[in-house]
Design a protein around this nucleic acid. Structure first.
Lengths: 217, 217
DNA sequence: TCTGTTATTGACTCTCGGGTCATTTAGTGC
DNA sequence: GCACTAAATGACCCGAGAGTCAATAACAGA
């Protein structure tokens, strides 16, 4: 162990992994502080890299955030779509399963990203566009398909599936924002799983055909 | 009209009205651009006043926003409470009326303020606290009371009123955020009134007692 | 009309952070 | 070992915008 026995380089070239590492670091900070209050210097530090390196891989802050959105969101939507595709049980059960899966997403960084997108949509329309394209449209189609399936199979009464989508999703939105925005600072307590159970309950009763109102999936 | 015939002062002393004018100006800009991207210089300009004047009436940007929240929110919550207090019809009808009133709020600046509060809660916990105290708790109690009333009067089946509150409110949250964040930038179309009608419908069916599932308020 | 009070302001400071670039140095092929 | 490429960086610039303060001018009262 002579003084010269430490030839560890001061930095390494890792152009393969850098982008993903930067995105991960950025995700954590954007989620925690929002877009405006996140400093690229901090992102860089968290990825063990200098600020200038960020600019080697991303043109600017906004593009970095766009990358965060893409990476965070796509796998989750993929999973949801796969779940639906392979399902062949009753539609009420399918809807319950889907809600459970969304419930899981509330703990993922996706919920935090959503918060930031909503907050910054006005300042960065491009972000809103990306989100709309990558998440909204696919999720929308997904849920709408489930409702339509239920109607076709005479498990639900006849409603306009498009109008049901926001109703299905909105409690999840609320719970997500609750968790990431208000919960830490407000004394009100919300039992997430109780609310979700109640949601599934009310929703399925509300969708049931009047003649079999007693049957609950 | 001699050149000296224009003794209109370059500015006027109006310490009574200034705060309200500043709050109004600030509301418009915060709603439009969010907290971080709103410049106090612009707020001042919009209130026809210099930036330094803002600091005469508000200690800093955050306090100004706090004032905006208070002023924007209180009258609306008051109105909702008054509506409930004086009501003596059926509870389903009351719930429909309440939803209609909230629908109106979606067009008020309150929805925009909510967006900003959610976005900035992490950076300014005090804001979240104020919102929780001024709006959340009162609104929560309000809706919870309506549900409890319906159960007492045997118009609803027996549920946990506290769990229903988020279910009642969440579609409104979604529609509000939709309007102020995504709608302008995303090609998806949401028919607000259709969604709200569907919400009332599903909700009331979901709350109905099984034995009178056919009766719709 | 003069004087005192205070609301208002213009001009200033200072920090913060996004973005740039010339230079350094790790890794690669010969 | 040597030269070449490109990954990584430190030091820099610069605009933006929050917050300050001494000076100014509107109004009230006498």
């Amino acid at each position: 162990m002579t003084p010269t026995s430490t030839p560890r380089p001061r930095w390494q070239r890792r152009s393969e992994d850098r982008p993903a590492e930067l995105v991960a670091a950025a995700l954590a900070l954007f989620a925690e502080r929002g877009f405006a209050r996140t400093r690229l210097a901090d992102v860089a530090a968290r990825a063990h890299v200098s600020k200038a390196t960020v600019y080697v891989y991303f043109a600017n802050k906004e593009r970095l955030f766009e990358a965060v959105v893409r990476e965070t969101v796509t796998p989750n939507v993929d999973r949801a779509e796969a779940l639906i595709r392979g399902y062949d049980g009753s539609t009420p059960a399918l809807l319950r399963t889907l809600l459970l899966l969304f419930d899981g997403l509330l703990d993922s960084p996706m919920a935090a990203v959503l918060k930031v997108v909503l907050a910054e949509a006005g300042n960065f329309p491009e972000l809103a566009r990306v989100w709309g394209e990558l998440v909204l449209q696919r999720m929308f189609a997904l849920v709408q398909g489930v409702i339509a399936r239920g109607i076709e199979r005479k498990e639900f009464r006849v409603v306009n599936p498009a109008e049901m989508v926001p109703l299905v999703m909105s409690p999840l939105l609320l719970l997500g924002l609750w968790k990431h925005s208000l919960a830490p600072h407000v004394p009100v307590v919300l039992d997430r799983h109780a609310v979700l159970a109640a949601h599934a309950d009310v929703l399925l009763r509300g969708l049931a055909r009047p003649e079999d109102a007693h049957v609950q999936g």
